[in-house]
């Protein structure tokens, strides 16, 4: 059992802490709402966290390399609009879906161009593309919405296999793939190497630019998947879909133990982070806490998570 860089012991302890938090959260919330602790509620919750979770997988790898992608929420909106409005304009829906995936990939690639070719900080680049993608979505849709999709489109976001939502299966498959990629392949090793010391990685022959490009394009693909599932789930394509998604995603990844400075993080941690955030949101909703409080709590949670992370890291050293 040897993965990449981080000593095994530390990862385990951090993930155990997260599990403990999750258990405590579940107990607290089940006391606040009787429906909370039921299997049907859990499965139901999973329908809402898959979109966050899929994007968080890509974001984890990006954050481990020391980068960030703020444009994911806007990208989701743009993909949603792209597939919805080309469908409305007469494109067959399967083709529109492929177009949506293409837009997602292109969005990620566009980000990576600025980051690798011009050596610009991902933060500023994706802040720019956040505005650009959201703006394109708004402009192309003229702030309108499309919702008359054919019945089979609902499969992507509303399908159930028994009691299990279809998107949960998609998510589990995606988790498995990304986990193997990060922990078992040389690309995973490269990701950690870049995050710990990009210059040394470059000097050691690691194809830094190619790895980064692949990560942003891959995240674009996950954003497209999330967009299709989301659009299907709510049966509507709108430009403001996914607003604020980047906050949920980054919070989940950071809560999962990835260092915002790059170099460390795991898929297991991120999955736990996603589940905690989704549980919190769902629980707070069931406990009738206004969504307004949820934004406040989430913002504070992000800051506290990063703070604790770096605090833990310092005491470990």
């Amino acid at each position: 059992m040897i993965s990449a860089a981080v000593p095994r012991r530390l990862k385990l302890s951090r993930e155990l802490v997260l599990l403990a938090i999750l258990v405590a959260l579940v107990i607290a919330l089940s006391l606040m709402s009787p429906v909370f602790l039921t299997i049907s509620n859990f499965l139901n919750t999973s329908r809402f966290f898959v979109e966050i979770g899929l994007v968080a997988l890509g974001m984890t790898l990006i954050i481990i390399t020391g980068g960030i992608d703020l444009s994911v929420g806007a990208g989701l909106g743009l993909v949603s609009v792209a597939l919805g409005f080309t469908f409305k304009a007469g494109l067959p829906l399967p083709l529109a879906l492929f177009l949506g995936v293409g837009v997602g990939l292109a969005g990620g690639y566009f980000n990576s161009l600025f980051i690798t070719k011009l050596d610009l900080h991902p933060l500023v680049v994706t802040l720019g593309t956040l505005a650009l993608y959201r703006g394109l979505a708004l402009g192309l849709s003229r702030a309108d919405a499309v919702s008359n999709f054919p019945g089979w489109f609902a499969y992507f976001g509303q399908f159930y296999l028994g009691a299990v939502p279809g998107q949960l299966i998609v998510f589990i498959v995606a988790v498995a793939i990304v986990w193997v990629l990060l922990a078992r392949t040389r690309y995973g090793r490269y990701v950690y190497a870049i995050g710990n010391n990009e210059q040394a990685a470059h000097f050691s022959g690691v194809p830094v630019a190619r790895v980064k490009t692949a990560l942003y394009v891959g995240t674009g693909l996950l954003v497209a998947l999330a967009a299709i599932i989301y659009t299907s789930r709510v049966s509507t394509a709108r430009a403001d879909s996914g607003t604020g998604l980047e906050l949920d995603v980054i919070s989940a990844v950071v809560l999962g133990g990835a260092s915002i400075y790059g170099g460390s993080g795991t898929i297991a941690g991120t999955v736990l982070g996603v589940v905690i955030i989704a549980t919190l949101r769902n629980g707070l909703t069931l406990a009738a806490v206004a969504t307004t409080y949820q934004v406040l709590i989430l913002g504070l949670l992000l800051i506290v998570a990063v703070f604790l992370n770096e605090f833990f890291r310092k005491t470990e050293e």
Binding site: A4, A5, V6, R189, Y192, A193, N196, N197, Q199, A200, A201, F203, S204, G205, V206, G263, S264
Partner: peptide, 18 residues
């Protein structure tokens, strides 16, 4: 330290990186 090695990596991961 800045160009040659990935300091937090184990010794073997540094030597096989290339």
């Amino acid at each position: 330290q800045s160009q040659g090695l990935i300091l937090p990596f184990p010794i073997y991961a540094n030597i096989t990186l290339s």
